[in-house]
């Protein structure tokens, strides 16, 4: 346990150090990928309990808008404060929606969570105060009074993303080994047994839903600061679909899956788009089919096969 925590922190420090030497475009790409990785780590908690949310875009977008709106309204650029606010608002909304959602399973859970994110999309598209479907620009972030300029511009958001990733990574790694983490598997496998062992299935799902919302809000907030621009598209169902895609691509068997999936996804998307702007979606779609058919446990399962000596 100590060993894993040290490893994750070590990886974080290495990423931060590497960030100092990275070209700007790569820093930017990785920041967005890590932010998505955070959202997908939350999704991982749900998926391990057998629940696929097609609506994590709701909290991703809400978190981003919180950062954008609060930054304007309170005239603050304090990155930490804004992100904290984003997480709190997301958890508060999840606390209400979760009460309803934890009654549903399977495709109903998927579709119902999608419906909620589409409601936010519908509201934002019609809100001229927030730029309607064009969205609006977010002011560059400040950290303890320091605002990076020029070359080191993207580095602040990158640093935030790495620190958040390390924190959430350690949490998820430990969580998956805790009674609550195991209870998720148990809910997926057999709800009747869970109830007869004395735990409330709804409470377990509710807890996971809140955690997932917090992580999605965190990812959305960081995205807003990194990208400097937000729009309602973040709540559109295709964004949520992307998160599920990433989860599947990376694999939900390990805390590292979502991060690897997110980086691969962003790279794949960027290169696919550069190589053939008209068929990048097709390339994504084909990759998804290949993964479902041949790597149902995601890319991370390849790593596990190698390290644990399982046959390929």
């Amino acid at each position: 346990m100590k060993y894993a925590t040290t490893m994750i922190i070590g990886a974080g420090i290495a990423l931060l150090a590497a960030g100092l030497f990275m070209p700007g475009w790569l820093t930017f790409l990785l920041t967005l990928a890590f932010a998505k990785g955070l959202v997908v780590m939350g999704l991982l908690l749900l998926m391990r309990a057998g629940l696929v949310s097609f609506g994590q875009g709701l909290y991703y977008c809400l978190g981003a808008y919180c950062v954008g709106i609060a930054g304007d309204y309170f005239e603050t650029q304090n990155a930490l404060l804004l992100i904290l606010l984003a997480v709190v608002v997301c958890v508060a909304l999840a606390a209400v929606i979760g009460l309803l959602l934890c009654r549903y399973r399977d495709i109903f859970f998927a579709m119902f969570s999608m419906a909620f994110s589409m409601i936010l999309y519908g509201v934002l598209v019609k809100s001229s105060a927030f730029g309607s479907s064009d969205g609006f620009n977010v002011k560059p972030p400040l950290l303890f009074g320091w605002t990076p300029t020029g070359e080191s511009g993207p580095f602040l958001a990158y640093g935030l993303a790495v620190v958040a990733l390390v924190g959430v990574g350690i949490f998820v790694w430990r969580y998956l080994r805790s009674p609550m983490g195991y209870a998720g598997e148990a809910v997926r496998e057999n709800e009747i047994r869970v109830e007869y062992l004395g735990a409330s299935v709804r409470r377990i799902i509710y807890t996971k839903y809140l955690l997932a919302a917090a992580m999605a809000g965190l990812g959305g907030g960081i995205t807003a600061l990194a990208a400097g621009h937000i729009d309602p598209e973040m709540a559109y169902w295709t964004t949520s679909g992307e998160f599920v895609f990433i989860a599947l691509m990376g694999g939900v068997g390990h805390a590292a899956g979502p991060v690897i999936g997110a980086v691969l996804f962003e790279l794949l998307r960027t290169y696919a788009f550069q190589i053939s702007p008209y068929t990048w979606q097709m390339i994504l779609g084909i990759s998804l089919l290949v993964i479902i058919l041949y790597l149902p446990k995601g890319v991370w399962s390849l790593v596990e096969r190698v390290t644990k000596g399982k046959p390929l």
Partner: peptide, 22 residues
């Protein structure tokens, strides 16, 4: 699983969107 099938058809949607554009 039903949820996996949603993802399969999601992949088909992505592919067809570009086929249409082509």
């Amino acid at each position: 699983d039903e949820v996996v099938m949603i993802l399969v058809t999601y992949a088909i949607l992505l592919i067809l969107e570009d086929v249409i554009k082509l």
